[in-house]
Simulated assay, not measured.
Amino acid sequence: MMTFNLSRLALLAGLVVAMFGFVTALQAAGANELDKPVMEYASDDLDTCALGQVMGLKADGDGFLSVRSGPGSNYTKLDELQNGDKVWLFGREGKWIGIVYGVGELSCSPISEDRVVPHDGKKGWVHENWIEIIAG
């Protein structure tokens, strides 16, 4: 006959909860993982970023701007932006712009060395056709 051990059951339940939390954290971390980092470039006393907004998306089209993990449509789609969404513009590769979004104000003060963008917020790459510079 099998005996019921409450302490073993509690331990097993705790392990299941911990594993679920670990998997959820991994999924969230990977949700905005970039194949190509967004860079902030040093330039003689010039600001390192500008504020932009998504514009020009047609209602009868996709209706969203894809945020990609790198500068090209072949990279993984991470998110979607809508007309009017504000984005901070950083490095550029061809017609693709590295962005930070989902944050308020950022410091775009000059820096002495190029670096991966250290700011909080979501990061990714968008096509320049759908971005309008509004400050910077």
Rank of each mutant, 00 (worst) to 15 (best):
D114M: 01
T76P: 02
L65N: 03
K77H: 00
R68Y: 04
E132H: 08
A135N: 15
S73G: 12
G70D: 03
K77S: 10
V38F: 03
D47G: 14
V117T: 03
E40P: 01
P118W: 07
G136P: 04
N5S: 13
F20D: 14
R92D: 11
D35V: 08
N5P: 10
G136V: 08
G84K: 02
T3K: 13
L81H: 00
E128K: 10
L12Y: 12
T48H: 10
V100A: 11
T24I: 12
V23N: 12
A10L: 14
N74T: 11
L89F: 02
V103Y: 05
L81P: 09
N32P: 11
G104Q: 06
K77V: 15
A28F: 12
A29P: 06
N129Q: 11
E33F: 08
Y101W: 09
E33P: 09
L51N: 10
V67I: 05
G98A: 04
V54L: 06
I133Y: 06
M39H: 05
L81N: 02
V23C: 14
K95L: 13
R92M: 11
M55F: 12
L6Y: 15
I131D: 01
L65T: 07
E113N: 12
G61F: 07
S112C: 00
H119V: 05
L106A: 05
S73R: 08
L106V: 14
S73E: 09
H127E: 05
W130M: 07
M39G: 04
T24W: 15
N32A: 12
H119L: 05
D35Q: 12
G84I: 05
F22T: 14
G56R: 01
L78I: 04
I99G: 03
V38R: 09
D44P: 07
E113H: 13
A18P: 08
N83Q: 02
L51I: 03
L57T: 01
P110Q: 08
N74F: 09
F22S: 13
V100N: 03
L46G: 04
L15K: 15
S109A: 13
G30V: 08
V54P: 06
N32D: 14
V16W: 10
R115H: 02
L6C: 13
R115E: 11
E113I: 10
G104K: 11
V54A: 07
R115Y: 01
V17I: 15
L65F: 00
F64C: 08
N129S: 14
A59L: 11
D60H: 08
Y41Q: 06
L57G: 02
Q27A: 15
K122G: 06
V23T: 15
G94P: 04
S66E: 07
W96F: 09
K36A: 05
P118N: 06
A29G: 07
G21R: 13
K122F: 03
M2V: 15
M55R: 13
A25R: 13
L81I: 01
Q82W: 09
G124E: 03
L6A: 15
K123T: 08
N5G: 02
V23P: 09
E105P: 00
D44V: 11
R92Q: 13
S109G: 12
V126R: 00
R92V: 13
G56H: 00
F4D: 11
A25D: 09
L89M: 13
N74V: 10
